[in-house]
């Protein structure tokens, strides 16, 4: 078993799984769980995306 995703794919997989757990554990009602999970997903994936571009330009 050898799985080699791209960095971006790995980020998305990580963000989905973490978002689900964060949503369920940090909020009480299903509606708020979904909203919080989606926000966590966006922040995980978005911050990785922004920081990646930042490092790209810093390396130049």
């Amino acid at each position: 078993m050898n799985y080699s995703p791209s960095h971006f794919t790995a980020v998305l997989e990580f963000a989905v799984c973490a978002g689900i757990v964060f949503g369920i554990t940090q909020r009480d009602t299903p509606k708020r769980m979904i909203r919080y999970g989606a926000a966590a997903f966006g922040l995980f994936a978005g911050s990785a995306f922004v920081l990646s571009w930042l490092m790209f330009f810093l390396a130049r």
């Binding site: 078993m1 799985y3 995703p5 997989e13 990580f14 799984c17 689900i20």
Partner: peptide, 15 residues
Amino acid sequence: LLLAIGTMFVLGIAM
């Protein structure tokens, strides 16, 4: 939770 955590663990092993 089982799906999310299990998937993450399996992906980690697969990588």
